[in-house]
């Protein structure tokens, strides 16, 4: 270990852990990639996936589609024994993504989108908005006129987006205030937890897509945010009081310095005079 202190090695290993995923040999990726000229449709998901947030976080083909990414033989790699499930039918998509995103799935299943999907496959599933392989970090911009008005009027969606946006703004503002108190060294653990829970409650709602319900739930979140606001205000008052005390003390010491200096100068003047 000499020459490479423990912590450098540690940092290197930690940093490498993410990208390493992609570097380990993955036969799904290599095999599909190779077919980019003969059958571009088979290769496209690989290139799409490489731009996605799943790729960034080390989520690979087999995490969703099953199969064995170590196997060299395609029949083994995509066998039932290896748990290969391939591409889901449209009505299976919510459960397919819901393997990991279970809370979102539960909310989605209560939506008009889900109802229409299960009835006659007319409703949009996860992939219709988030794409199948190029998923990006979620943003409210996913709710936009181009996407929504493919099926219905944008009006409702625009209201929903605005409600979510203003909620997000309030949550972010509160986050900054709590963070400031944390930096001041105040114990804000319970406030941080409460805010985290509120943020989750607000975000999970998005997929219910029922404007009335979302507005009423957001109202409830906002009320709890108000209660949190009171606690944060108390903390801010504490910080404010400390600053006041500090200001008084600084002024006091500066006056003390001035007086001591004047006293010193007077003493030195007297000493000087007495010598002549």
């Amino acid at each position: 270990m000499r020459g490479y202190p423990f912590w450098i090695v540690f940092v290197a290993v930690t940093l490498a852990a993410g990208p390493l995923h992609a570097e380990v040999k993955n036969t799904c990726v290599t095999c599909h990639e190779e077919q980019k000229d003969e059958d571009p449709d088979l290769a496209a998901p690989v290139f799409d996936w490489q731009t996605s947030i799943h790729f960034e976080n080390g989520i690979s083909c087999s995490d969703c589609h099953g199969g064995n990414p170590r196997a060299e033989d395609e029949d083994v790699a995509m066998s039932e024994e290896a748990g290969f499930v391939g591409a889901p039918d449209p009505e299976e998509v919510p459960d397919f993504c819901g393997k990991c995103h279970s809370a979102v799935r539960d909310n989605y299943m209560q939506s008009a989108h889900a109802e229409a999907l299960l009835e006659d496959e007319s409703g949009p599933s996860c992939v219709d908005c988030h794409t199948a392989h190029k998923q990006q970090k979620v943003s409210l911009d996913l709710i936009n006129e181009d996407l929504c008005s493919q099926c219905h009027d944008y009006d409702q969606a625009a209201k929903l987006k605005e409600a979510m946006r203003s909620m997000d703004q309030d949550l972010t503002l509160m986050d900054h205030r709590v963070e400031r108190l944390f930096r001041e060294g105040l114990d804000v653990e319970s406030e941080q937890k409460a805010l985290f829970a509120l943020r989750n409650r607000a975000h999970r709602l998005t997929h219910v897509l029922d404007l009335d319900r979302i507005l009423s739930e957001l109202g409830a979140v906002r009320a709890d945010l108000g209660a949190l606001d009171k606690r944060v205000q108390e903390g801010e008052q504490v910080v404010q009081n400390r600053r006041r005390l500090g200001t008084v003390m600084i002024l006091f010491f500066l006056i003390g310095a001035l007086l001591a200096w004047m006293y010193h100068r007077e003493l030195m003047r007297e000493a000087h005079e007495s010598q002549h």
């Binding site: 001041e184 600053r243 500090g246 200001t247 003390m249 600084i250 010491f253 001591a260 010193h264």
Partner: peptide, 25 residues
């Protein structure tokens, strides 16, 4: 004579310390 000079520095020091403690933790 010199203690008063020390005291001057001490008060300036305390003011600086207070500034850091209260405003730049």
């Amino acid at each position: 004579h010199m203690v008063s000079e020390d005291l001057t520095s001490l008060f300036i020091f305390l003011a600086a310390l207070t500034l850091l403690v209260f405003f730049f933790p």
